[in-house]
Computed example of a mutant assay.
Amino acid sequence: MKKFKEFEIPFVGLKQGKHQFDFEIKKKFFDAFEFDEYNNADVKVKLILDKKSNMLELTFENKGSVNVNCDLSNEPYDQKIKGKLHLLVKFGEEYNDENEEILIIPHGEHQINVAQYIYEMIVLSVPSKRVHPGVKDGTLSTEILEKLEEFQPKEEKKNNDGETDPRWDQLKKLLTDK
């Protein structure tokens, strides 16, 4: 975790009460996690650390954008993101992060590294289905979208005399004959 030294928060010297830490997350941060789904990133993270006598409360908030490829057209675009994460840090005999909302660290610890929590919060802020805004409003025109429209299922075709295919009629009868 040496590469995330700037994300280490030394809480021992802090007075009780709320303290704010700000981070700017860029593509280099995700490269360190070997996460390559984002072409670029510009996310601001605000961390409020509320130090109490027997525990710490961490509230993370992120806001910004990540450049991702559209799932339909593969065109890159900036996806706006916003997210929040709340974490309680308690002190115990040994390190335990099994619960996603409570982190237990040994009594002798004097700092906490928040890089993993920032990473998870940002990744979970991005929608699982990423669709370019131009696809939604119809302004994006690419070869891939034209092919998708070409292969889109058409309405049931009628014969020249206006009747449907008799094979389909026989199958539809099976649904109504019970």
Rank of each mutant, 00 (worst) to 15 (best):
1 M>I: 07
2 K>W: 05
4 F>I: 05
6 E>L: 14
7 F>P: 00
7 F>C: 05
8 E>F: 09
8 E>N: 15
9 I>Y: 02
11 F>K: 06
11 F>V: 12
12 V>K: 10
15 K>N: 12
16 Q>L: 12
16 Q>N: 15
21 F>W: 12
22 D>V: 11
22 D>T: 13
22 D>Y: 10
23 F>M: 14
24 E>R: 13
25 I>C: 10
26 K>E: 14
26 K>C: 13
28 K>F: 13
29 F>W: 06
29 F>S: 04
32 A>E: 13
32 A>G: 10
35 F>A: 03
38 Y>P: 05
43 V>N: 00
44 K>A: 15
44 K>F: 06
46 K>N: 12
48 I>A: 03
50 D>N: 10
51 K>F: 08
53 S>D: 06
54 N>T: 08
55 M>N: 00
60 F>M: 09
61 E>M: 13
62 N>Y: 02
63 K>S: 13
64 G>L: 01
66 V>F: 00
67 N>A: 13
67 N>L: 06
68 V>K: 00
69 N>A: 14
70 C>G: 04
70 C>R: 01
75 E>G: 02
76 P>V: 04
76 P>A: 11
78 D>A: 11
80 K>T: 06
81 I>M: 01
82 K>W: 01
83 G>T: 01
85 L>F: 09
90 K>S: 09
93 E>Q: 12
95 Y>M: 13
95 Y>H: 12
97 D>P: 11
97 D>H: 13
97 D>N: 15
100 E>D: 15
100 E>Q: 15
104 I>E: 07
104 I>N: 04
104 I>A: 08
105 I>P: 05
106 P>D: 14
107 H>M: 13
110 H>I: 13
110 H>P: 10
112 I>Q: 05
113 N>K: 09
115 A>R: 05
116 Q>F: 02
116 Q>V: 09
119 Y>E: 03
121 M>R: 10
122 I>P: 01
123 V>M: 05
125 S>P: 04
128 S>C: 03
132 H>W: 01
135 V>A: 01
136 K>R: 01
137 D>T: 03
138 G>L: 07
140 L>V: 09
145 L>F: 11
146 E>L: 08
150 E>W: 13
153 P>K: 11
154 K>D: 09
159 N>R: 10
159 N>M: 12
166 P>D: 10
166 P>F: 08
168 W>S: 07
168 W>V: 09
171 L>F: 10
173 K>I: 01
173 K>W: 07
174 L>C: 04
174 L>A: 06
176 T>I: 14
